[in-house]
């Protein structure tokens, strides 16, 4: 099953795409490791989909190069790149059954019948849709359609699988379930996954590495932990997770809401301290969110573990905010 792992290292070199005067991807350099789960994360218009479409071959590149295992594929048409792709909205063929959809990539490659049957069977097992093989796509739920799209894209053992916001159409609960399935499938097939999303939770929960994009450029690359704990720019800190921004020693710092302790005035114990007043307290089940106003600063958000905190602090209470050294991350200027 790990037939995709033999190749699949991608290299983007100074990749650029311009639409007229608009630069959708600006000199992007990126090494994607063989077998890696890499997520392109960014708001709409950040260039992440443009990048994916250039990798897939649906968009011509304006400048730079794309290498697969060391050789350029920039001039190869999409049907000969052999990359699997899961589209936004799945793009399942509505007139074909689940079985026919999954068999399609092997059918068009004129593989022997027996091989197609065996391979489609394996894929149906992989996504657990054996009993739906003869249904039409419209007779399936959104989550099932998503799995058919995945099976179809993996059926021909592509070295690289490209996924364009594949969970966008699912509801939140199902999305979390499918995230786990996707990660599991990634580990089992060993194919390189390049995943585009604007959803930070998806990016954090599944990726080996995340590429944060903005305005056609790479803002920061790193593992989920690195990006969350050590954002380099204000954009990265604000887009991935929530952040408070403080100015200290002449530089902007990002401080995650859950790293701040909150205590009634005079009882704060951290190395760094601010005095403020609780303006709002919101209960979210697992955590309590306080909005604390501090003289001369923006409102600071503090998240505390709701169960451990006991009784919420009343609105209007004067409090001390404190955090240990190293909790606030110094950001680069943009």
């Amino acid at each position: 099953m790990s037939d995709g792992a033999a190749s699949g290292g991608l290299e983007l070199k100074a990749l650029t795409k311009r639409f007229g005067s608009f630069t959708a991807a600006d000199n992007v350099n990126l090494d994607i490791q063989r077998g890696e789960f890499l997520t392109l994360l960014g708001p709409s218009g950040s260039g992440k989909t443009t990048l994916l479409m250039m990798i897939a071959g649906f968009l011509d590149i304006t400048g730079g190069d794309i290498l697969l295992d060391g050789s350029s594929i920039a001039a190869v048409p999409p049907e000969r790149r052999n990359f699997g792709m899961v589209f936004q909205g799945y793009a399942l063929f509505p007139h074909m059954s689940v079985h026919q959809n999954i068999a399609y990539p092997l059918d068009v490659r004129r593989r022997p019948k027996a091989e197609i049957e065996r391979r489609v069977g394996e894929m149906l097992d992989l996504v657990q849709l054996q009993e739906f093989a003869h249904r039409l796509p419209r007779q399936l739920s959104g989550g099932q359609q998503q799995r058919v799209a995945l099976a179809r894209a993996l059926c021909f053992a592509p070295p690289v699988l490209l996924l364009d916001e594949p969970l966008g159409a699912l509801d939140k609960k199902l999305r979390i379930e499918v995230q786990a399935q996707l990660k599991d499938i990634h580990q089992r097939v060993g194919t390189t996954f390049v995943y585009v999303t604007h959803d930070q939770e998806e990016a954090l929960s599944m990726s080996d590495r995340i590429v944060i994009m903005q305005n056609g450029r790479i803002e920061q690359i790193g593992t989920p932990q690195e990006l969350y704990q050590r954002p380099r720019t204000a954009f990265a800190a604000g887009f991935l997770g929530k952040s408070n921004f403080l100015t200290a020693n002449g530089a902007l710092h990002a401080l995650r809401p859950e790293k701040i302790d909150i205590a009634p005035r005079g009882k704060g114990k951290g190395a760094n301290r601010l005095a403020g007043t609780v303006r709002n307290a919101t209960y979210f089940g697992s955590f309590l969110k306080y909005d604390v106003s501090v003289v001369g600063m923006d409102t600071i958000e503090v998240d505390v573990d709701a169960w451990r905190a006991g009784e919420p602090i009343a609105v209007g209470t004067e409090v001390d905010l404190s955090w240990p050294d190293g909790a606030a991350v110094r950001l680069e200027d943009n």
Partner: peptide, 17 residues
Amino acid sequence: DTRLVSASRSLGATGSQ
């Protein structure tokens, strides 16, 4: 849906297929 045509090409089908 033009994505169906793109999907077909990404799955390895030629233009005439």
